[in-house]
């Protein structure tokens, strides 16, 4: 059942990318004077993302957890390269990297309570201790906050993403692919809807200081379109009902926006455009997964509430 979803979605996504590739090819032929470099790079990166996600889903739990662990590592690496740290914080930086394998081993073993508490409780206490031992008190709050946002936006959110795919049987190697693909698809399509609605009706800026291009009209349009789409497709890929799918779509769209502006705010503060150039045409990993960062952990809780019978 689960592998059917993987194969079907892979076929759909690959055909969509092929069509996009064809359109770009025609556009380049029609207007050779215009620069399509960015578009070409973006599409190529999308190929990579689709192939990596779908293959790891196909091969099951181990490969999927390894992939998300690597993505966490790359995200943490680009985050720590950009933020300001004191010299004395080097040990803490090392511990932040160490948190990644630990979190994903807990997930692999299906240790639910430990997995949930790992970032907010265990990691934080270790990091507080490390900062107290190694550094001067001046700048302590900044250092602690920097570490906390870093853990939250990489290890915590992607950890929830990995756990979302686990089935109830801890010995099974199966991944519930629908639970993974639905939030990715909805947050990404929400970005597109927001952009299109903003272009068409955008008038009132929603966060002029952080993202001057985002408008209230774009945000609401994205919210309506994404949740309607979610209501239609959710029952086919997950065990949610139409109503539950609608609520899930609403949550993913609004919190996707929040994650997006959270990352934008961090980049504004640091005076940078992208976190890195790891994903050509898109910027860094964090620039790509920004809308998943807050949405996925909340979606995780939502799915649990649904499976306990809420709104069914």
């Amino acid at each position: 059942m689960s592998n059917n979803i993987v194969i079907t979605s892979a076929i759909i996504l690959c055909s969509a990318l092929l069509i996009a590739q064809l359109i770009i090819y025609v556009m380049i032929k029609m207007r050779p004077d215009k620069d399509y470099q960015e578009l070409v790079l973006r599409t190529r990166s999308w190929w990579w993302i689709v192939v990596l996600v779908e293959t790891s889903l196909y091969f099951g739990k181990t490969s999927f957890i390894v992939l998300l662990g690597l993505v966490s590592f790359f995200a943490m690496r680009e985050y720590l390269s950009r933020v300001h740290t004191r010299r004395s914080d080097r040990d803490t930086l090392f511990l932040l990297f160490l948190a990644i394998p630990m979190q994903f081993v807990l997930i692999y073993r299906g240790m639910f309570i430990e997995f949930l508490c790992f970032v907010p409780l265990y990691s934080m206490s270790v990091i507080v201790l490390a900062l107290l031992v190694s550094g001067p008190p001046r700048g302590f709050i900044m250092a602690l906050g920097t570490a906390q946002i870093g853990l939250f936006s990489t290890v915590y959110s992607l950890g929830h993403f990995a756990y979302l795919g686990l089935s109830d049987d801890p010995n099974s190697n199966q991944i519930i692919a629908g639970n993974i693909l639905l939030p990715i698809f909805l947050t990404q399509i929400n970005d597109v809807f927001q952009y299109m609605c903003g272009k068409a009706f955008g008038k009132h800026k929603i966060m002029p200081q952080i993202s001057p291009k985002k408008t209230i009209e774009g945000f609401s349009g994205g919210l309506i379109l994404t949740s309607s789409l979610a209501a239609v497709i959710a029952p086919y890929v997950t065990s949610l009902t139409h109503l539950q799918g609608f609520v899930a779509g609403l949550t993913l769209a609004s919190l996707g926006f929040l994650g997006d502006v959270l990352m934008s705010a961090i980049k504004r503060d640091l005076d940078i455009k992208d976190f890195s150039q790891l994903v050509p045409g898109h910027g860094g990993i964090l620039d790509r997964i920004d809308s998943l960062i807050i949405a996925v952990p909340i979606y995780f809780h939502l799915v649990r509430a649904f499976s306990n019978g809420w709104l069914s």
């Binding site: 590592f73 690496r77 720590l80 080097r90 040990d91 930086l93 090392f94 890195s276």
Partner: peptide, 12 residues
């Protein structure tokens, strides 16, 4: 840095 043996993966 010069006085450390622990490498932190960071992008230059």
């Amino acid at each position: 840095p010069r006085d450390s043996f622990i490498l932190i993966p960071l992008i230059p």
